[in-house]
């Protein structure tokens, strides 16, 4: 996809929904920076801390989504590379390329299920499970990203509300900063 402004390859995509009307802008990094949209701001595809990730989504406002073309921040692999090689570049690719990868994993692993099943079986002996609230937040955020990707904006808005309520609910549980 080309940049709407200069014709270079676009890697920042803005989707705006206002009063039920959707508009899209596709820009290269330079034009996106000029327009005040940077991949840095739009880091929602490759978050590391789940709570931070939710805050970023909330901070982006209820009606604007800005998403960078997914690229693994650790090894630089893209979804295009995966499609060519059928191999990911590093363990972090699973998170960085989660949105385009998820339907493929679902199809190959659990075609009959609507969402990815959770891992069952052996685990590293030193592995500490995240707390239940964090797991719920991760799940809701995953569903939100899926809904945005599938352009199901009503469902995305519902999920965002759920996340906000959940986040407000668990905030008192977090230790004071």
């Amino acid at each position: 996809m080309q940049c709407d402004e200069c014709g270079k390859p676009a890697n920042v995509h803005e989707i705006r929904v206002e009063n039920g009307m959707k508009t899209e802008r596709h820009l290269c990094s330079e034009c996106a920076a000029k327009a005040g949209l940077t991949a840095q701001e739009a880091h929602v595809d490759a978050p590391t801390n789940p709570v931070e990730m939710i805050k970023q989504v909330l901070a982006a406002g209820p009606e604007i989504e800005v998403r960078a073309a997914p690229e693994c921040p650790t090894c630089g692999s893209t979804f295009a590379r995966f499609r060519k090689m059928a191999l990911l570049g590093c363990p972090d690719c699973y998170q960085a390329l989660e949105v385009p990868m998820q339907p493929l994993i679902l199809r190959s692993q659990a075609a009959e299920a609507r969402e990815l099943p959770e891992h069952q079986g052996l685990r590293p002996s030193g592995f500490k499970s995240p707390s239940q609230p964090t797991k719920t937040l991760i799940r809701l955020e995953r569903e939100l990203q899926g809904a945005i990707h599938a352009e199901q904006y009503e469902r995305a808005a519902d999920l965002r509300d759920k996340i906000r309520k959940f986040n407000e609910g668990i905030e008192p549980l977090d230790p004071p900063e």
Partner: peptide
Amino acid sequence: EHLNFAFNEQLGYLTACPTNVGT
């Protein structure tokens, strides 16, 4: 006990090809 394997809660053991991910 000696090696730190790539793993996450949801997807299990992380593998180069997603057809092996999990167990």
